[in-house]
Design a protein around this nucleic acid. Structure first.
Length: 934
RNA sequence: GCAGGGGUGGCAGAGCCUGGUCAAAUGCGCUAGGUUGAGGGCCUAGUCCCUUAGUGGGUGCGAGGGUUCGAAUCCCUUCCCCUGCACCA
């Protein structure tokens, strides 16, 4: 049959829209509110969205069929820098940016309009909405919106939220280090870097070594080793400056000056020197107060810190190697011996020396130094303990004492903290970045302990799909620090208390689920009427209505609607959002809303991969939702993506799977339409068995649907059920029971609705149903119709088919004329039943035999009984799940002779063991009849 | 490094919580046969090794050790893989 899946989809989407099927308003029945993070609209929806959006979609349709009033809204995110930057690049006619849009199929004149970010937003909102509709998502579009000031009503809402956060004390101001590009004059996040992805400002320490009134500020990651400094290093080839830093005279590499300035130090250069000019005989270690020399070393770079480093040859392989090098040219250095200060497992007194030997380090330029350093540092940090030379710190572990030493040094003004990038970071504009301390930064105080506690409570009350992400959530809540929630660039909403700042994109997206409940009404209210009292009254139930300018009837209605829909019952997103968005979502709800409005359920899923590769725009392996739908039609895409993975596993998109699913859907359609109402009215055990399976599959699928385990749900409710049906049809010689086939077709089709609603509607129409498939009730199962004992019979028949095949092929009889099936004697089933019971208490064959011999009928077959017991005691897995009496087994085999005859194309005879003259008859066991082929 | 999730047959992927019925579901792939004008599809059987007119033995669930009558499943150690680590959507 030729079926146009896309045309079918289009037809039913139109019907749903005309009947406003998914426009949800409060009703007198239980509600279920489902949301998904709105996509960022700087491009087309891709396959990743397909997965994350499909889960709530399937859940929404399922819940509707379960009788819930379901609200599933959808909106769009435009906050942040990417759209604005893209518009800027278009304005600058940047080739790369233009070609991105060209590749998407836009014409030059359309692209030209993208110099205005608003046009980018509008274009992609429109495109996304179209894609989502073509995909068949059951969305209430009346409530749709996009973010930023370009939507002033949303901005009003966000500003209200931030005033609330401020009043609650969760919005604070402070300074913090960021990776900064001084050319672009902005913080450079991972995505805006051409090099150095993942690099973050590391906290280093600058320790001040004094020589008269000049300070040699050493940058170090290991301030605890200050006790073991034998000398300082400077690079003789670099340019250093003598400068006034915060009123002190420092010697630092020239490159360090802008970095110091960026970190709140006042720097005034006094004079410049070549490195070799500033070597010294003596500087003073501020902690041990010993005098040490300043030596030259070429491994010192100007990129890290001040360009002045302290040398700890006992614990730093690089220092050790450099010192050895220097000893060759300066006799004064030869007296210097490494000072050990850390005792560490697996090493002797001077770990650095041992490491240099182990890695066969030649000199200070040796590439393997890096590895040697890593090994020593890591060992010392994790297992090292400070020696007596460290005075009051002795006996403490490096790990524990490090922060203490830093704060002691800083308190004593011997040191300052300094942030540095330990590996190069280069901005897209090709400028090398450094760390800047940003002032007056606004934070959401996720570090606030009371807030964390509240959020933990919210998490504890929240159902998670799957439950196993809970530990991760708990860690994230504990781990989150204050979040810089505003920036000076990008689209968004201005911070109400400080109009210089724009609220950053993750921070304006935490409680907007509440906005959906009233969004369609808001469109009819003038922006000027959306004051504080308005939102207070509707969303918090605070204040009185007389302070509100908007129409009071409407406001009352909105308040009711909010209270009807809220809280969110299920919010689904990718697993990458656990550590930010979803946790922020919990935090902010506890800050703004009453406890009854805190989130009820959160769903998390994996990523979508293509050929096991993570999707990435730069690698060019991105597939858009629209292209997939064009290729396969929405139902196939919907089904394929959900059969692919569940829980936190990644779903790998595979066109072969899609092709196979496409075929399966068409087959199901054909089968359902052709067979509905066909068949006879006879009924035997096999019919009862299939009914049992229909009910069992319905039960299992329902259970999985409730847990959003859609893959398992389809496995049980579709793939397994189809397999059972095949067996049923085979057993009935393809002439089916009409009533049962009807039940099968209806149940199966209904259970497919959440996944492939379009083709289900088409089937439903062909079956002459009055209602839409989408509005049908989810099938109920009858527990009483589920009969495991019937499985024993069917397993028995499948088993005998199996055994006969084996025996036939072993017998080398090409064309058997007769097959004898010999059913085990009844005393054997008695024995099996007995052993099955007693084996729980003992596995000793002797004891079991003794017990069995107490039974007269078993004693009669003493030798055989003993032999059988010995065999099954060794491996009681051989016992069948259900032991049937000989008569039952005989009967069902007898009943299936026609079936077996058809299968093997020869005569079939079923006899009881005691009536058989065959030698092999005594091999028969319950559930395992003997087979004789002739 | 820290945190989270994993390592099962040619592949994908169940099983692990609650140990035995697990040589391990199911799907794909592969082999043979059937159906078909051909292809596709569909149907049937097979697909770790050895043995056999059968229901027997061996090896096996990242590696090593332990608990147990018994371990893919529980405990310990170890190796490896994936994800995240922030001001970014």
């Amino acid at each position: 049959m030729k079926l146009n899946l896309k045309a079918i989809a289009k037809r039913w989407q139109k019907v749903w829209a005309e009947r406003k099927l998914f426009e949800a308003d409060p009703l007198d029945k239980p509600k279920f509110f489902i949301t998904v993070p709105y996509p960022y609209v700087n491009g087309y929806m891709h396959i990743g969205h397909t997965y994350t959006d499909m889960r709530p979609e399937a859940f929404a349709r399922y819940k509707r069929m379960r009788g819930f009033n379901v609200l599933f809204p959808f909106a769009f995110h435009a906050t942040g820098t990417p759209i604005e930057s893209a518009a800027k690049l278009v304005a600058e006619k940047d080739e790369k940016q233009l070609s991105i849009y060209k590749d998407m199929g836009f014409k030059d004149e359309e692209i030209a309009r993208f110099c205005d970010p608003k046009n980018i937003i509008k274009t992609f909102v429109k495109a996304a909405r179209k894609d989502i509709n073509t995909f068949g998502l059951s969305v209430d579009w009346r409530r749709s919106f996009f973010t930023t000031e370009l939507n002033p009503r949303y901005s009003k809402f966000i500003q209200w939220q931030f005033r609330k956060l401020h009043k609650a004390g969760y919005l604070t101001k402070g300074s913090h280090p960021v990776v900064w590009c001084h050319k672009d004059n902005m913080a450079v996040g991972d995505h805006a870097r051409s090099e150095g992805e993942g690099e973050v400002p590391e906290e280093l320490t600058i320790i001040k070594f004094k020589a008269d009134d000049v300070i040699f500020p050493c940058t170090t990651t290991r301030p605890e080793t200050v006790f073991g400094v034998t000398n300082l290093w400077i690079n003789p080839n670099l340019t250093y400056v003598k400068a006034l830093v915060d009123g002190e005279t420092w010697i630092v590499a020239e490159e360090a000056v802008p970095k110091l300035e960026a970190q709140k130090h006042k720097v005034q250069i006094v004079e410049k020197h070549k490195g070799e000019e500033i070597l010294r005989k003596h500087v003073h270690n501020p902690l041990t107060n010993t005098a040490i020399p300043v030596f030259p070393a070429v491994f010192v770079t100007a990129h890290t810190g001040t360009g002045v480093v302290m040398s700890v040859p006992a614990h730093a392989p690089a220092d050790f190697a450099a010192l050895e090098d220097y000893k060759k040219q300066d006799s004064a250095a030869r007296n210097i011996v490494p000072i050990s200060l850390i005792k560490v497992e697996g090493f002797g007194e001077i770990p650095a020396a041992e490491a240099c030997k182990k890695y066969n380090i030649k000199d200070q330029n040796d590439a393997r130094l890096e590895e040697a350093t890593r090994e020593v540092y890591s060992k010392e940090f994790h297992t090292g303990v400070l020696l007596p030379i460290t005075g009051k710190y002795q006996g403490l572990s490096v790990q524990n004492v490090k922060q203490k030493i830093i704060s002691d040094l800083v308190d004593a003004k011997h040191a300052v903290k300094f942030y540095e990038l330990l590996n190069p970071v280069v901005c897209r504009c090709r400028t090398r970045c450094h760390v800047k301390i940003v002032d007056n930064q606004w934070f959401l105080a996720y570090g606030n302990l009371q807030w964390k506690e509240k959020t933990h409570k919210a998490l504890a009350n929240c159902k998670l799909y799957p439950e196993k992400v809970r530990t991760q959530f708990m860690h994230v809540i504990d781990w989150l620090k204050d979040w810089a929630c505003a920036r000076q660039l990008g689209l968004g909403t201005k911070l109400p208390l400080d109009k210089e700042w724009v609220i950053e994109s993750l921070s304006d997206s935490t409680i907007y689920n509440a906005y959906y409940t009233i969004a369609h009404h808001l469109k009819n209210i003038p922006v000027s009427q959306l004051n504080e009292a308005f939102f207070d009254y509707i969303l918090l139930g605070q204040g009185t209505i007389d302070k509100i300018k908007a129409d009071h009837n409407l406001v009352e209605q909105m308040k009711q609607e909010f209270n009807y829909w809220y809280p969110v019952d299920f919010r689904n997103s990718g697993k990458d959002l656990v550590q930010n968005h979803l946790s922020f979502y919990l935090f902010n709800h506890t800050a703004i809303f009453a406890e009854k409005h805190w989130p009820v359920g959160i769903g998390v899923n994996g990523y979508v991969t293509l050929q096991k590769m993570k999707m990435s725009k730069s690698k060019g392996n991105v597939r858009f939702m629209r292209d997939l739908i064009k290729l396969w039609g929405p139902d196939v895409v919907r089904m394929s993506i959900l059969t692919n993975a569940e829980e936190l596993d990644d779903a790998d998109w595979d066109d072969d799977v899609a092709a196979s699913n496409s075929q399966k859907l068409i087959q199901w359609y054909t089968f359902a339409v052709d067979n509905y109402g066909e068949g006879d009215s006879t009924k035997t055990d096999i019919d009862a068995w299939f009914v049992s399976k229909i009910n069992a599959c319905t039960r299992d699928m329902t259970c999985s649907m409730d847990k959003t385990l859609f893959r398992t749900a389809l496995q049980r409710g579709y793939f397994d059920l189809q397999r059972y049906f095949k067996w049923y049809a085979r057993r009935r010689g393809n002439i089916l029971n009409a009533e049962i086939v009807k039940q099968f077709i209806e149940t199966q089709t209904k259970m497919l609705v959440p996944f492939v609603p379009h083709i289900c509607e088409e089937i439903w129409m062909k079956l002459q149903k009055q209602m839409l498939a989408s509005t049908e009730n989810w099938p109920v199962f009858d527990e009483a119709a589920i009969k495991p004992e019937l499985d024993a019979i069917e397993d028995g028949i499948a088993g005998i088919v199996d055994d006969i095949s084996t025996v036939v092929s072993l017998s080398k009889i090409e064309k058997p004329v007769k097959i004898n099936i010999i059913v085990a004697a009844d005393w054997k089933s008695k024995l099996f039943t007995l052993v099955k019971d007693k084996i729980k208490t003992t596995r000793n064959a002797g004891e079991l035999i003794k017990i069995a011999m107490q039974d007269v009928s078993l004693k009669e077959h003493g030798a055989e009984t003993a032999a059988i017991i010995q065999r099954i005691a060794k491996d009681h897995g051989k016992l069948p799940a259900t032991v049937l009496h000989q008569e039952v087994e005989y009967q069902f085999l007898k009943d299936s002779t026609a079936f077996l005859k058809a299968n093997f194309g020869c005569e079939i005879e079923v006899v009881k063991e005691q009536e058989s003259k065959e030698m092999k008859a005594k091999q028969a066991l319950p559930g395992k009849p003997a087979v004789v082929v002739s």
